[in-house]
Computed example of a mutant assay.
Amino acid sequence: MRNNLKFLLLFVLIISCAKNPFTGKNTMAFVPNSQIFPSAFQQYNQFLSENKVINGTTDAKRIETIGSKIKTAAERYLTANGKPDYLKDYQWEYKLVESKELNAWCMPGGKIVFYTGILPVCKDDAGIAAVMGHEVAHALANHGQQRMSAGLLQQLGAVGAAVAAEKYTPKYQNEAMQAYGAGSQVLGVLPFSRSHESEADMIGLTLMAIAGYDPINAVKVWERMSELSKGKTPSEFFSTHPSNETRIKELTVLIPQAKAEAAKFGVTFK
């Protein structure tokens, strides 16, 4: 019976994987986008209704214009790589929201928010493109879907740990479950999240380059962010994000690759 369960789990893992055209990796897809997108769109609309959306200003128009250019870059990339219908269910939207937070985010399906607080860090259009490319990349790589899938696996692991603890160490079941929770978070969830951030950096760098923005500006954004957040960020090991220093190093290494990809589309930089 136990072996049958193992084979069933392996079968579910295999059929629930999807190859992402931006990373070339097979990724977990236990929950289909057809279920995720409607919920994400509803949450996005609710967020907009509860916060101050900036409309009609120069900055608001810049967010929309640059977002559209990044989206077009993604479409060009996908078409060139034989995936012209990949974005058919996406409903792109780009909104500027008043907030002091140094943040921007993208919901599954292409719903994007920029906070006014991050604009000084972006500094210019190229900086906005760097952040926009990164956030759009999260949606294109289906990171939300993967996080939900990983959460299901973590819950399944917790059930297995509970059964094992009850059988082998019943006196220390609570301690065993606490150890599992802490271990799965630090050794599983956090590295998984950091890998998503690195993937989004890589994809975003390529998208901004194809859209005509010099990818060196992504490095400059993170250099400015690093200056603002000195002494305020947790150790990378205990964080959902790579450190600013790690990101700067990785982005710097990836710049030639992003430029080479953009050159395939006739976009070059001095």
Rank of each mutant, 00 (worst) to 15 (best):
T57L: 05
K69P: 07
N51P: 02
N55V: 11
N81C: 02
I70A: 01
Y77E: 08
N81W: 12
Q42C: 14
T65G: 01
V53S: 13
A60N: 09
F47W: 15
E64P: 02
T72V: 11
D59V: 02
T65E: 11
A74Y: 04
I70L: 10
A74D: 10
N81P: 13
T57G: 11
F41S: 14
Y77G: 08
Q42G: 10
E64G: 00
Q42D: 08
Q46E: 07
N81M: 14
Y77R: 05
K61S: 11
N81Y: 12
Q46S: 08
A73Q: 02
N45M: 02
I70V: 05
K61N: 15
E50Q: 03
K69L: 09
L78A: 14
I54K: 00
K69D: 10
K71G: 03
A80H: 09
A73I: 05
T57K: 00
E50Y: 13
A60R: 01
T65A: 00
K61P: 10
T79P: 08
I66A: 00
K61E: 12
T58R: 02
I54A: 02
N55A: 07
S68M: 07
A73M: 05
T65R: 03
K69R: 12
F41T: 14
T58V: 03
A80T: 04
N45H: 14
Y44A: 08
A80W: 08
Y44Q: 04
I70G: 02
S49R: 15
Q42I: 10
E75R: 01
K69N: 13
I70Y: 00
A73R: 00
D59M: 03
D59R: 00
V53T: 10
Q43A: 06
R76Q: 15
F47P: 01
R62M: 09
R76I: 14
L48K: 12
F41H: 15
Y44I: 04
D59H: 04
N81R: 14
Q43E: 09
A74K: 03
N55M: 04
Y77Q: 06
R62S: 07
Y77M: 03
Q46M: 04
D59K: 15
R76C: 00
K52P: 11
K71R: 00
T65N: 02
V53G: 13
A74T: 10
D59W: 15
S68Q: 14
N81I: 08
N55R: 03
N51I: 09
I63L: 04
A73T: 01
A60H: 05
G56A: 12
T58D: 12
E64A: 04
T65D: 15
I54C: 02
I63S: 09
G82A: 06
R62D: 15
L48E: 14
F47V: 03
I63V: 02
S68D: 13
A74I: 01
A80K: 05
E64Q: 08
A73Y: 10
A73V: 05
N55G: 07
I63N: 04
E64K: 04
Q42R: 15
T65V: 10
Y44C: 07
Q46R: 15
R76V: 03
S49N: 10
G67S: 06
N55C: 09
T57V: 06
